[in-house]
């Protein structure tokens, strides 16, 4: 086991001792900083004392629009229900500018984390081949399976570290810009026609959790491409392309029945908790099964190819 920790430390050393990878980290922090500055300078109307009347007026206008646009019915129903809940429970709408609101918006950064993780995953095995170092790496008394596992786990640890950094930097920056607050306010979510009061931080971690499924699947996919094709540009390019166009692909084929078996139709589990499933009849268990099958196929392919390959590069 101590051997395995050594391998993880090796992989980490190879990730964090490279300037290019540190620049990615700087970009992520830069993005959060920019977000903070924009939020700080942005003008927003203060919440007035007669906020109950204002919410009622807002609901009335939304109900009108809802009749004109039946497509958007669910979206408006949700907003109206939340507003009504505020009025009946006397929960004042929050101003946009406070530390916890800023922190709870931080899952937006996961788009960047996704791309950066794909870049790391796509280079993980392919770079060893292009550097020629694979020959010295694979002649040690360590099985190929163990080496592959250490590389995969290091990739996931990188993604995790990025999330933690995002959270910590957001919290610090939010505190500096908007003043530190003790406990977070509550968040109102709408599920199955009911409004539920939730802890804001719990809500935020749920957002991270949902987004992490995509992160995990695409990191695994990029890692597989890296191992199978030994070409980091191909692995990274193809994985980023799929990540960006995934939703589009699903929409394009949405008239076919088999679209529900596409990875990207299942990757957003939020659809089962907050809102409605993408395709009627899809369930959480169905999506979890599809995800598990994709995941196992990716891992199995990666492992078999890495294990069997003659290193001739």
């Amino acid at each position: 086991m101590s051997n395995f920790i050594g391998l993880i430390r090796n992989e980490n050393m190879k990730i964090y001792r490279r300037i290019a990878n540190l620049i990615m980290l700087a970009l992520l922090i830069g993005f959060i900083g920019l977000n903070g500055i924009i939020t700080k300078t942005e003008k927003s109307a203060p919440v007035k004392d007669n906020w109950k009347q204002e919410l009622k007026a807002e609901n009335a206008s939304m109900e009108k629009t809802m009749k004109k646009e039946p497509m958007m019915k669910e979206h408006y129903e949700r907003l109206i229900a939340i507003n009504e809940y505020r009025i009946s429970q006397g929960i004042k709408p929050q101003e946009n500018k406070n530390q916890w609101k800023f922190v709870s918006d931080s899952p937006d950064a996961i788009q960047f984390i996704l791309i950066f993780t794909i870049i790391i995953a796509g280079g993980m095995v392919a770079s060893e081949f292009s550097w020629g170092t694979i020959k010295l790496l694979l002649i040690r008394p360590v099985s190929r399976t163990t080496i592959l596992a250490s590389k995969y786990i290091s990739t996931l640890l990188y993604a995790l570290l990025m999330i933690v950094i995002t959270f910590v930097i957001s919290w610090l920056l939010g505190g500096v810009l908007f003043g530190f607050e003790g406990s977070p306010r509550s968040f109102l979510s709408y599920t199955d026609g009911k409004v539920v009061e939730e802890n804001l931080i719990w809500h935020m971690w749920k957002e991270y959790g949902f987004a992490s499924i995509m992160l995990l699947m695409m990191a695994t996919f990029a890692f597989m491409m890296s191992t199978v094709f030994r070409n980091s540009s191909l692995a990274i390019g193809f994985s980023i392309f799929l990540s960006l166009s995934g939703t589009l692909i699903v929409q394009f084929f949405s008239s076919y029945d088999w679209v529900k078996y596409i990875l990207f139709a299942n990757v957003n589990l939020k659809q089962y908790f907050d809102g409605t499933p993408f395709i009627k009849g899809m369930t959480l268990n169905f999506s979890l099964t599809v995800l598990a099958v994709y995941f196992l196929v990716f891992i199995a392919l990666t492992w078999i190819v890495f294990k069997k390959r003659d290193v001739a590069a």
Binding site: N3, L7, M13, K14, R17, R18, R140, P141
Partner: peptide
């Protein structure tokens, strides 16, 4: 003898030393 060019010579040796007992 292809080594990790972005690491120092010493870090390269540390790297391989972690792979054996």
């Amino acid at each position: 003898p292809e080594m990790y060019k972005f690491l120092t010579g010493y870090q390269n040796l540390i790297h391989y030393s972690r792979m054996v007992k």
